[in-house]
């Protein structure tokens, strides 16, 4: 599930090579999907968690947070000047 790096590459021309929000959002969303599936299909191991399906709830929460980050990056993209960093402060 390599969604995170792929997403960042797509937006390159617009947000620079690396919009950190896409990377964070992509990774958290991917984790969210994996954990949600574990929660639905796997053993919830309630003896450890004290009765809560921890994977399911944590997975859903991560999915939401991840999607919020991606949405933020899509709605408010970062633009960088062509040719990388122009830095007047360099000696």
């Amino acid at each position: 599930m390599p969604t995170a790096p792929a997403r960042a590459t797509q937006r390159r021309h617009r947000a620079g090579a690396l919009d950190i929000r896409n990377i964070i959002g992509g990774l958290l969303a991917a984790y969210g999907v994996i954990l949600t599936l574990m929660g639905l299909l796997g053993d919830p191991e309630t003896d450890k968690t004290g009765g809560v399906n921890a994977n399911l709830w944590a997975g859903l929460a991560m999915l939401v947070v991840g999607l919020v980050f991606v949405a933020w990056a899509v709605l408010r993209p970062t633009y960088v000047p062509d040719g990388g960093a122009e830095d007047p402060s360099a000696d």
Binding site: M1, P2, A4, P5, A8, T9, G16, A17, G26, L27
Partner: peptide, 17 residues
């Protein structure tokens, strides 16, 4: 593994910049 793939991917992409 997914985490490490992303970390190394960041390194590779940052290198171009």
């Amino acid at each position: 593994g997914l985490y490490f793939a992303v970390v190394l991917g960041i390194g590779l992409m940052a290198r171009r910049q």
